[in-house]
Amino acid sequence: MENLKIEGTDRAPEVDFNFENNTFALRGESYPEDITAFYGSVLDKLDEHLSSQNGATIRFDFELIYFNSSTAKVLMGLFETLDEAAENGNEVLITWTFEADDDNMEEMGEEFSEDLEHAKFEMKSIEE
């Protein structure tokens, strides 16, 4: 699948999906005007790709500064998708980067990762 790179805007995150290397990242702010229009096709491509993988090493980096509640729903689904990929014989590492003083973002990372059964998860705090 062709790699996918979408530049971030004020309201939508940078999407950096390298299907060849199995490295994926979302960076920046996420409160897009139309949540389905933004995430729909991007995540469909990811789903399709992940379901074709077996024995692969997959890495997903979340480097989000702010997201709204509609995005939170999308992220919850994305964590489930990644855990499924790990269940299906892939090695999956998810990283969650947050600003050191951002308790809310830290808690969100903890909450999303609580239900992971197969994927590995790492939290990374950075100073602003």
Partner: peptide, 17 residues
Amino acid sequence: DRQTAKGVFSIFVEQVQ
């Protein structure tokens, strides 16, 4: 304070949406 600002902004977004 950055976290206060983030809180205000987040609530603003949810309210307007």
